[in-house]
């Protein structure tokens, strides 16, 4: 088994920590990290100190990391920097796993797909919930017709206001708030359930009642119509209180002609109560980030193109871009299939 070299680009997104742990735990993988923009995140963890904490080798800048000739990179930068990092890494011949959302505009997302195609590398998007075995079972059940014809889906991806990283609420770096951060997970699961059937209509409303000090929307509902007539609504709000016992959660309710299904992606847990600390929340579910990293590593070793790919990233970005247009106009937006 040859050794794979995987570069970790930026610690801006906190998922970098779990990807780093999963990569370090994978046999035959060498990891080199760089966090070139960490000086901008004053007072937040990052840079060589964070690399040391995680047990990662560190490169001062992207050029040094790319000169190491990584087979692939995992990009965990701020959202609006995904494109430039992807383009530079692809040009250097590295396959790309990019944190979600793939981009903050369809134009950027399409440019990233084009850049990777031109460079002959694959582009994968970090949608870890797709790898949940319960979701795989739901997808199989839908594909086998166990629910009959899928008609309607209600999805939730609620969380706390992201803590420890100020850029999440900086429109220039995040591209938006809860609607940017949380619509795409459910949109990706819908994409997988419907096998890539494109969205054709989006209606969305957003508000800033929660955490009104934030410069971005913190509450939102996104209603999506797909080309096959399926409708879905996503609650993407950062509506979990700051002292909620976990970061948040993701649920799907699927209505079919022959039955309904409920998915609670973080339902594998023990609940309890601890005096003075409130609710106890003991998750024992799969490490979804590790499953995502395993897909990346397997794709590199077998030479196949992993899913979810850049095309999914573009489709989910189209939903978000249309959601903002709709929230601005107050009317639904049509998308060409």
């Amino acid at each position: 088994m040859s050794t794979l070299r995987i570069g970790l680009v930026s610690f801006a997104h906190t998922h970098a920590t779990s990807y780093a742990r999963a990569l370090l735990a994978t046999p035959g993988v060498e990891v080199l990290a760089t966090d070139p923009d960490h000086a901008e995140r004053a007072g937040e963890s990052g840079g060589p100190a964070m690399a040391r904490e995680l047990g990662l080798d560190y490169a001062e800048d992207l050029e040094t990391l790319l000169a190491w000739r990584p087979d692939a990179v995992v990009i965990c930068s701020e959202n609006t920097r995904h494109r430039s990092y992807t383009e530079r890494c692809a040009a250097a011949g590295a396959h790309v796993l990019c944190e979600k959302p793939l981009a903050t505009s369809v134009a950027d997302a399409e440019a990233m797909v084009a850049a990777c195609e031109a460079a002959g590398v694959f582009l994968m998007v970090a949608f870890p919930v797709r790898f949940h075995p319960a979701f795989a079972a739901l997808r199989d059940a839908v594909a086998a017709g166990d629910l009959g014809t899928v008609a309607a889906v209600s999805g939730t991806n609620n969380g706390k206001l992201p803590a420890g990283r100020a850029w999440f609420t900086d429109p220039a770096l995040a591209g938006g708030g809860a609607m940017t951060d949380h619509t795409v997970h459910v949109a990706d699961l819908m994409d997988a359930l419907l096998d890539g059937v494109p969205p054709v209509g989006v209606y969305a409303q957003a508000n800033r009642l929660l955490h009104p000090e934030a410069a971005v929307e913190t509450g939102g509902l996104v209603s999506i119509e797909y080309a096959n007539g399926v409708v879905a609504t996503v609650d993407c709000s950062w509506s979990k209180p700051d002292d909620y016992p976990t970061w948040g959660g993701l649920t799907l309710h699927v209505v079919g002609s022959e039955g309904q299904a409920d998915l609670d992606a973080f339902g594998d847990r023990v609940d309890g109560f601890t005096t003075g600390r409130g609710q106890t929340w003991l998750s024992y579910g799969e490490d979804l980030d590790a499953l995502l990293v395993a897909e990346l590593v397997d794709a590199l070793r077998t030479g196949r193109r992993p899913q979810p790919d850049g095309a999914v990233g573009v489709r989910t970005t189209r939903v978000v871009e249309a959601a903002y247009a709709s929230a601005r106009s107050g009317q639904p937006v049509r998308l060409d299939p």
């Binding site: 009959g148 008609a151 309607a152 209600s154 939102g220 409708v231 879905a232 609504t233 209505v255 309904q260």
Partner: peptide
């Protein structure tokens, strides 16, 4: 008969948002 599902998004005067969904599901649900 087939199943029917409706999804409604409400915007309230105070800015709050509501998602309301109703389903007439398969018999026996």
């Amino acid at each position: 008969r087939g199943v029917v599902s409706a999804q409604v998004v409400l915007t309230h005067a105070g800015g709050a948002l509501s998602y309301v969904t109703g389903t007439w599901a398969a018999p026996g649900s």
